[in-house]
C-alpha cells in the first residue's frame, strides 16, 4: 500500500464479524490495485498496520470512505464505530452484520448471561468452580481489561449515522468491484454519488427475478424441509414446497443458492421498498398456501419449524421487531 498524502483516504474495519467480508474484498483480485491507485489506505487491519491511536489522531472527516463490516457486539466495537463515524465523510455499512445483524443477531433472543453460561458449560468444558471471563481482573501489577459484551448485538445504524448500505453475506465480489468502479468515477468527476441512504452494490428487485428456475403458479399444500424433497433441478423451489426466501430478498447475488439446489435464506436482506423483511416474507408465504380451511392452513404452517430462523435469520437485529435493543431501553 502506498502512502501519499494527496490521495483521498480509505478505511475498512471489522467489528464482530467472521472475516468473510474481508475475504470477499480480497477476492476482487487485481481490482484491489484500483483501490491502491486511487486511495491512501489509512486503516485496514486485514491489509495494513492498523492502530486505533493513528485513527484518533486524524482530523474529523478526513477519511473519505470507510467500509464498516461486522455487528456491534461489545463496547469496543461501539467505540470504534463512533470513532470512524467521526473521522469519515462517507460511512458504508458493509455486509449483512453491519446492515441488519446477520446470523450473530439471532443471539438477541437470549440473555447475554445465558450465552456466556452456555459456552462455558458444554459437555467438554471442565468448569466445576463456575469460572467466567471477567471484564477486568487483578494481577499483582495492576488491572487487566477485556471488552464488555453488550446486552444485544446492534446494527451499525443503531449506533451511528450511516451514509450507504451494501448488503450480502458476504457481498459478492463482482458487486464490490462495481462499487469501487463507481467511487473511482466519482473521484474523476465522471459520476455522482447516489443520495444518502441508498443501498449500493445490489439490485433493485428480488432474488426470484435473477433465478433461472421455471415459475408457474405458486400454490403449495405443504412446506417441506430440504431433506424431505427430491429437488427438481429446473422448477422454482417454493413451488416444490421448499420455503425459499428469494421472494422477499434483494437481488444482487445472481441467485447463487437456488442455482446450487438450495433455497435462498435471505442473506442480501430486504428487497427494495420492503420495510420489514420477515413481515414481507410471512405475507408472501401466506399468499401461496393452497387452502381456505383454517385447520389445514395451520397444518401447512407447521411445516415452518423455526419461524425466527426462517423469517429473520439475517434480519433480526435490524427488523421492526427492534431486536437490536434491549427490552428495557426506550424506543
Amino acid at each position: 500500500m502506498t502512502v501519499n498524502g494527496n490521495k483521498p483516504k480509505f478505511a475498512m474495519y471489522w467489528a464482530a464479524s467472521c472475516g468473510g467480508c474481508e475475504i470477499a474484498v480480497l477476492n476482487i483480485h487485481e481490482k484491489i490495485l484500483d483501490v491502491d491507485a486511487n486511495f491512501d489506505v489509512v486503516f485496514w487491519p486485514v491489509a495494513m498496520d492498523a492502530k486505533y491511536k493513528d485513527v484518533e489522531a486524524m482530523e474529523d472527516g478526513s477519511i473519505l470512505l470507510t467500509l464498516f463490516n461486522g455487528g456491534i457486539r461489545n463496547d469496543e466495537n461501539e467505540h470504534i464505530a463512533k470513532l470512524l463515524r467521526r473521522k469519515s465523510k462517507i460511512l458504508v455499512a458493509f455486509g449483512s452484520c453491519a446492515n441488519e445483524g446477520c446470523i450473530p443477531g439471532l443471539a438477541n433472543l437470549s440473555d447475554s448471561r445465558e450465552i456466556v453460561s452456555t459456552a462455558f458449560n458444554t459437555i467438554s468444558t471442565d468448569n466445576p468452580k463456575q469460572i467466567y471471563p471477567m471484564i477486568s481482573y487483578d494481577v499483582p501489577e495492576g488491572e487487566i481489561h477485556i471488552p464488555k459484551i453488550l446486552p444485544v448485538l446492534k446494527t451499525l445504524d443503531q449506533v451511528v449515522d450511516v451514509d450507504y448500505y451494501m448488503p450480502g453475506c458476504p457481498p459478492e465480489s463482482h458487486q464490490i468491484a462495481a462499487v469501487i468502479d463507481l467511487v473511482v468515477q466519482v473521484l474523476q468527476g465522471k459520476a455522482e454519488l447516489p443520495p444518502k441512504g441508498t443501498v449500493i452494490g445490489a439490485g433493485n428487485s428480488t432474488v426470484c427475478d435473477e433465478c433461472k428456475r421455471a415459475r408457474n403458479i405458486k400454490m403449495v399444500k405443504s412446506f417441506k424441509r430440504i431433506w424431505g424433497v427430491e429437488v427438481d433441478p429446473e422448477l422454482c423451489l417454493l413451488e416444490q414446497g421448499i420455503p425459499c426466501n428469494g421472494i422477499a430478498t434483494r437481488s444482487g447475488c445472481n441467485a447463487r443458492c437456488p442455482t446450487a439446489g438450495a433455497q435462498c435464506i435471505g442473506c442480501y436482506g430486504p428487497a427494495e421498498g420492503v420495510i420489514d423483511y420477515g413481515a414481507r416474507l410471512i405475507s408472501a408465504f401466506a399468499s401461496v398456501i393452497d387452502s381456505n380451511d383454517p385447520e389445514e392452513i395451520d397444518r401447512i404452517l407447521d411445516g415452518i419449524v423455526d419461524p425466527t430462523g426462517q423469517f429473520y435469520r439475517f434480519n433480526l437485529a435490524g427488523s421492526l421487531l427492534k431486536a437490536g435493543k434491549p427490552a428495557w431501553e426506550k424506543a
Binding site: L109, S110, I115, A119, P133, I146, P147, L153
Partner: peptide
C-alpha cells in the same frame, strides 16, 4: 493472550 470475543453460537 486475552481473546475478547464471544458471539454465542452454542446458545442461539
Amino acid at each position: 493472550v486475552n481473546v475478547i470475543e464471544l458471539r454465542g453460537f452454542e446458545k442461539f
